[in-house]
Lab assay of single mutants.
Amino acid sequence: MPSETPQAEVGPTGCPHRSGPHSAKGSLEKGSPEDKEAKEPLWIRPDAPSRCTWQLGRPASESPHHHTAPAKSPKILPDILKKIGDTPMVRINKIGKKFGLKCELLAKCEFFNAGGSVKDRISLRMIEDAERDGTLKPGDTIIEPTSGNTGIGLALAAAVRGYRCIIVMPEKMSSEKVDVLRALGAEIVRTPTNARFDSPESHVGVAWRLKNEIPNSHILDQYRNASNPLAHYDTTADEILQQCDGKLDMLVASVGTGGTITGIARKLKEKCPGCRIIGVDPEGSILAEPEELNQTEQTTYEVEGIGYDFIPTVLDRTVVDKWFKSNDEEAFTFARMLIAQEGLLCGGSAGSTVAVAVKAAQELQEGQRCVVILPDSVRNYMTKFLSDRWMLQKGFLKEEDLTEKKPWWWHLRVQELGLSAPLTVLPTITCGHTIEILREKGFDQAPVVDEAGVILGMVTLGNMLSSLLAGKVQPSDQVGKVIYKQFKQIRLTDTLGRLSHILEMDHFALVV
């Protein structure tokens, strides 16, 4: 994948999101292997301009796509893939009243899908469409860049269908997702969380590099694949309309690839034109409109599966009536509230959605109805927002919020430890010299600072030695090549209790 991002070429006709291997024109390309080798690009942008032909009021008969309808489940399912879809609609009884809503608040519980998330729908649909058009064949390999849930859905379907599955996901995604993927037989590649989507090191860039190296491999490409919004247009939206008897006044959905909100909203605009569509985008993402909503100094966020630093091709923002931004604290607070007060075992993005819903639905009156999409299960986040310690460490809970008995030293300040200034190293000294210094002084790690004293990161003896043994660096290389740029900081005025929580999850903390 090139470091400079080429513009994806656009073909003359058809839909841009065809499933299957992508040609340089962004659509299915038939021909000899030699032709494909000559024409197939190194990668295709996940934010390529959409060429979708959908228009409100256009006859369904003019759609270029294969459409399906929700099917009634048999008493005995032939395999677990038949437990994807037909998820329950559940009334939220307490939270709406707590925040003064007059309307009825309903939750579409997508964590009841077989793999635990709304992404099971698009995973199965992308595979079925690729099999139907002859792209996927027995023994082929599926590769997908994902925040985890699409990966789980694909790995689940691949396990049943017999495909090899490789999932490329950023490091910030939970260990629970990784464990589930491994249990399903998927191979996992992790990428830096802070890598831009168009960087060769991003999950998108690495996935395309693997595709170019592995024979008979395919990126189904949830960011561009029409099967993504079509899955929701054909099934999720129809289920909502049936469950609500066609009567709903507002739908609120958090947005990642945009397939969920695009597919549902398009069908609702056709069948229930008075329904307002509300999009939820986390602070630090750029999906919301108008652009002024996205202006923030924050560039990272903890909530998973929603928000991006690019506009995915499948996201149709014209069908969203209003956007709201959400933050991590309210997302996790509301997710825990949904679990504790409503018994809905949902993930953090569901918290984002409901946090926005109780604001947006203030305009609705008694007798009206708001539906929220709860995308995934708490299963993926047992060591994250479900953990009091994690919430404390991230600053989303305060010590006084917890009532468990603490040891005698818990409320003492870090400054009472009488710490001395640490050994520091410059980023320009060599790895070999740094190892000598650390061994001589008896230290395992040291902060790396520039000549102005600005902290650049941390270097550890173990990481340097393993990097040297693996051949990633040489003793003569500058130590700046092996620094940890993500590390926890703590102030002298913070409590030892807070430091204790940090050290339970990290090997060190830097006192500043």
Rank of each mutant, 00 (worst) to 15 (best):
R164Y: 13
L105A: 07
R209A: 08
K39Y: 02
F111Q: 02
A186I: 05
G151R: 02
P170H: 02
V180R: 04
S27A: 10
L42P: 09
I264T: 09
G151A: 02
M169Q: 15
R58V: 02
R125L: 05
E144T: 02
C15F: 15
H17S: 08
E104G: 11
L210R: 04
G185V: 06
Y163L: 05
Q242F: 08
E176Q: 08
K75C: 15
K75H: 05
R164W: 07
H17N: 05
Q242M: 14
M89S: 02
F99C: 11
E37R: 08
P192L: 02
G96F: 02
L106C: 15
K269V: 02
G259L: 02
S123M: 02
M169C: 07
K267A: 13
S73E: 02
T235S: 11
G139T: 10
N228C: 02
R164Q: 02
L241Y: 15
L154T: 02
R121P: 07
D245G: 13
S3T: 09
S19P: 12
A157C: 08
P145R: 02
K269P: 02
E37H: 07
M173R: 05
A38T: 14
I240S: 02
I166W: 02
P33T: 09
T87L: 02
K98Y: 07
R91N: 12
T260G: 07
K30S: 05
G148S: 06
Q55D: 02
R121V: 02
F99Q: 08
P229A: 06
K98V: 10
P16L: 12
T68W: 09
G85I: 02
I261H: 08
R190G: 04
S63F: 08
N149R: 06
T262L: 05
E37D: 10
S199D: 14
R58Y: 02
E270M: 07
L101H: 08
A237E: 15
C272Y: 10
S3A: 09
T5Y: 12
R224L: 04
L184V: 02
A155W: 05
P138F: 10
A8E: 06
T257R: 11
K267Y: 06
E270Y: 07
D120A: 11
A195L: 02
G256D: 02
S19T: 02
S32D: 02
F99R: 02
M173T: 09
A253Q: 09
L28C: 08
M169P: 13
Q222G: 04
L248T: 08
A253T: 13
H203D: 05
S32W: 11
P21L: 11
H65E: 05
S254C: 13
K75D: 02
L81Y: 02
D47C: 02
G263I: 02
V255R: 02
K98C: 06
N225E: 06
D179V: 06
S175C: 08
T135G: 06
E37W: 14
R58M: 09
K137G: 08
P46D: 06
P70Y: 02
N113W: 06
P273G: 09
I127V: 11
R18V: 11
I152W: 02
A231Y: 06
K94R: 12
P41Q: 09
I214Y: 11
R51L: 05
N225G: 02
F112Y: 06
I166T: 15
K94S: 13
K94L: 10
S202A: 08
I127M: 06
L210Y: 02
V178K: 08
A107L: 02
R161L: 02
C244G: 04
D35T: 07
P46T: 04
P16D: 08
T135P: 04
E176H: 02
L251P: 02
A237R: 04
L77H: 04
S227G: 02
A155I: 02
R196G: 09
S19N: 05
G134D: 13
E176L: 08
L241P: 02
E9K: 12
P170G: 07
A48S: 04
R132V: 06
P33V: 10
C272G: 09
H232P: 02
A207G: 05
S73I: 15
H17F: 06
E37M: 06
N113D: 06
S175E: 10
K172S: 07
A24S: 09
K94P: 02
T191L: 04
H203G: 06
K271I: 10
E187R: 06
S174M: 02
R209M: 08
L56G: 02
K36W: 04
D234R: 05
V10C: 15
A114P: 02
N194L: 08
A158T: 15
G256S: 02
N93L: 14
E62I: 14
S174V: 04
P12H: 15
E213G: 12
R45T: 07
N113T: 02
D133R: 14
T146P: 07
R276N: 13
I166V: 12
K25A: 02
I240L: 02
K39G: 04
R266L: 02
A186R: 04
R182L: 10
G11L: 07
S227A: 10
S63P: 07
R18C: 06
L77Q: 15
G14C: 02
I142E: 02
K271T: 12
V180Y: 05
D221C: 06
R190N: 08
R196N: 10
T191P: 04
A253L: 15
M89L: 15
S3I: 04
I143Q: 02
T191Q: 02
N93S: 12
A107F: 05
N225T: 07
E110T: 04
P200L: 10
A183D: 02
N228L: 05
P46N: 04
P145S: 02
I264D: 08
V160F: 02
P49V: 09
T150N: 02
S27K: 12
V118I: 04
V178T: 02
G153M: 08
P145H: 04
H65I: 05
D79F: 14
Q55W: 02
S19C: 02
D120W: 08
A253I: 02
P6Y: 14
Q7M: 02
E128A: 05
P74S: 11
A8V: 14
E213H: 05
H67V: 12
E104W: 06
G31C: 15
A207Q: 02
P6Q: 15
R125T: 04
L154W: 02
Q242L: 11
H65A: 02
S174P: 02
P12V: 07
D249C: 05
G100D: 12
P138M: 07
S61R: 14
V90M: 05
T13R: 02
P273W: 11
I261K: 02
H17G: 14
D221P: 02
N113G: 10
A231F: 02
A253F: 06
N225V: 02
D179A: 08
S254K: 05
A253W: 02
I44L: 09
E4R: 05
G20R: 10
H232S: 09
H232C: 02
Y233A: 02
I80C: 10
I166F: 07
W54M: 08
G11Q: 02
G259A: 06
A107T: 06
A130T: 07
K97P: 07
R209H: 02
E29W: 13
S202V: 04
Y223I: 02
E62T: 05
F99P: 02
P74C: 08
G100F: 11
N225C: 05
H218I: 10
P170A: 05
C272I: 05
P2A: 13
K39H: 02
W43E: 06
I214C: 05
K211N: 12
A159N: 08
S123C: 05
L105K: 04
L268F: 10
H203Y: 08
I143V: 02
L220E: 02
D140P: 02
C15P: 02
L210G: 08
K25L: 10
D179I: 02
S61Y: 11
S147N: 02
K119V: 02
R209L: 08
P215Y: 09
W43S: 06
A8M: 02
K247M: 12
S27C: 15
F99G: 14
D140S: 09
R190A: 02
K97A: 08
T262S: 11
K247C: 14
K108C: 02
E62P: 14
A157I: 07
D234K: 13
I142M: 09
T135E: 02
I152S: 10
L81F: 08
I95S: 02
L248R: 02
L77V: 10
T13C: 02
D35F: 02
P41L: 14
T236P: 06
V189S: 10
F99E: 11
I219T: 02
T146S: 02
K30R: 12
